[in-house]
Amino acid sequence: MRLLTHNLLACHSRHCTQTSNNFPLKFKDVKLELLETDFNEAFIRGFLPKLDWNALVLTARELGDTSLPEQGPDMEDPMLDQQILRNLHHVLLEVSMA
């Protein structure tokens, strides 16, 4: 599973919905794989508004990746920092959990 998918998932079991622990899902004993993919800036920019930035940063840090800033980027900024977009691409599409 990639963090792109993980950021969209929540636990819907009865136990989870009765508490506030349904998002983000927690990982235990996962094996990380790096899957190289071509950078697609348009896709990353289009997906950015759908992200829960805090959950993404929390999960990425739990998995050992500290490349994303604590504060999310300004999505309206046409001059959005290329390095943030590339780091986001890496975290969302190239880091995979098995």
Rank of each mutant, 00 (worst) to 15 (best):
M1C: 08
M1I: 11
R2K: 13
R2E: 00
L3W: 07
L4G: 04
L4T: 05
T5H: 10
T5C: 11
H6T: 03
H6V: 05
L8E: 12
L8P: 01
L9H: 05
A10T: 14
A10D: 05
C11S: 13
C11V: 11
S13A: 08
R14W: 03
H15D: 10
H15A: 12
H15G: 02
C16D: 07
T17Y: 03
T19M: 06
N21T: 09
F23E: 01
P24C: 05
K26A: 12
K26C: 00
K26Q: 12
F27C: 05
K28I: 10
K28H: 14
K28E: 15
D29S: 15
V30H: 09
V30W: 07
V30P: 13
K31E: 13
K31C: 04
K31S: 13
K31P: 01
K31I: 09
L32Q: 13
L34Y: 11
L34P: 01
L35F: 08
L35I: 14
L35M: 05
E36F: 06
E36P: 06
E36V: 09
D38T: 12
E41W: 07
A42F: 07
A42S: 12
F43C: 00
I44N: 03
R45L: 02
R45Q: 03
G46P: 00
F47S: 01
F47Q: 06
F47P: 02
L48P: 03
K50S: 15
K50A: 14
K50R: 11
L51V: 12
L51M: 13
W53N: 00
W53P: 00
W53R: 05
W53G: 02
W53A: 04
N54I: 11
N54P: 00
N54S: 14
N54E: 12
L56N: 10
L56R: 12
L56S: 10
V57M: 05
L58W: 07
T59M: 11
A60Q: 03
L63Q: 06
G64Y: 08
T66K: 10
S67W: 06
S67D: 00
L68F: 10
L68N: 08
P69T: 15
Q71G: 04
Q71A: 11
G72I: 13
G72R: 05
P73G: 07
D74E: 12
D74T: 11
M75R: 13
M75E: 14
E76N: 15
P78C: 03
P78L: 02
P78K: 03
D81W: 03
Q82W: 01
Q82G: 09
Q82V: 12
Q83K: 15
I84E: 03
I84F: 07
I84P: 01
I84L: 15
L85D: 05
L85Y: 07
N87M: 04
N87T: 12
N87E: 01
N87Q: 07
L88E: 06
H89C: 08
H90W: 04
H90I: 00
V91D: 05
V91M: 01
L92C: 08
L92E: 00
L92P: 06
L93P: 00
L93I: 01
E94M: 11
E94G: 02
V95W: 02
S96M: 04
S96Y: 08
M97C: 15
M97P: 00
